[in-house]
Design a protein around this nucleic acid. Structure first.
Lengths: 150, 150
DNA sequence: CGATTTTTGTTGCAATTACAACTAAATCGT
DNA sequence: ACGATTTAGTTGTAATTGCAACAAAAATCG
């Protein structure tokens, strides 16, 4: 059977590594860009949701968000409807960073897809969406302490 | 343009997270399985090469290897031809772990590819190989302090 | 209603991760 | 041959990462 785990892992580490190095110029530490772009795209998002969509432990996301708040890149406001929720928003400083990150990501994406026809790009994106859906329930299961049988 | 960075990142984190949780039963800490399988497949490999193929900082690989050696899973022997190199091998204990890891990886791979026809699986694997090649030179460049223009 | 469970967020550890800066050996260039 | 550069590995430091264990608010359900 075709092997896809390994290239997915190596490509992800390479791209993440590149981004982390490049975003140090923006005073962003490792991983912070991940949360920044998601908050930009979903203003008012809460921590637990953010952790799930980034696919990271909620305590990891919590500390990343705390740090970004301390650095004035985002802010949290208590939800008006649920006293235990905190809604997350970008500050003006965070909003200024967003297009820069998007541009870097677009460049990396274009580099990754060099030599691909438009049809191939679409097909790869569609494949990855399916893989993501396939693996998601296992991730949720295992994160919640359930056991996979194999 | 089709976006592939994000699903690659989320899938990689989900799969890595699952593996790390499951391999705690083998007394393997976070990330260690990555190096173990590579050493199993390339006995005698040296640290710098290992770091490059896993796409991780060489100091990260160094400490992972040190720990695996301390735990009796692998051992290092000075290269007979180059006194500054250390060749890495699995111990019997490490060899016993290898098939277990392979089986878990195969199961995750099969889960990720559920609903894909054999032709689709092959095509996705081929696409990922191309993406990996595309991104690799940028990774090496940026890791060595060079600057990407965009 | 009221007890139980689920949701949401937080700290306390303990570990990985990686940039800098360094040593020692090998290779390269002239 | 020999100085300069590259290769290979290590340690110092500072940061992220995540499993446990917790607290408070909300939702569920008898």
């Amino acid at each position: 059977m075709a092997e896809i785990l390994r290239p997915i892992g190596t490509v992800a580490r390479a791209l993440d590594s590149i981004s982390n190095i490049e975003f140090k110029a923006l005073d962003l530490n490792r991983g912070q860009y991940l949360y920044l772009v998601r908050v930009a795209e979903s203003p008012g998002i809460i921590l637990e949701r953010l952790a799930v969509i980034v696919r990271v432990d909620k305590t990891t996301a919590a500390r990343a968000i705390q740090k970004l708040e301390k650095n004035g890149i985002l802010e949290r406001r208590p939800s008006p409807t649920d006293k235990k929720q905190k809604q997350i928003f970008l500050t003006a400083k965070g909003q200024a960073l967003y297009p820069i990150i998007k541009r870097e990501n677009a460049y990396s994406n274009a580099t990754a897809l060099k030599g691909f026809t438009p049809a191939e790009r679409d097909q790869l994106a569609e494949y990855l969406k399916r893989v993501e859906a396939n693996i998601n329930s296992d991730w949720v299961k295992v994160k919640h302490g359930e056991h996979r049988d194999y």
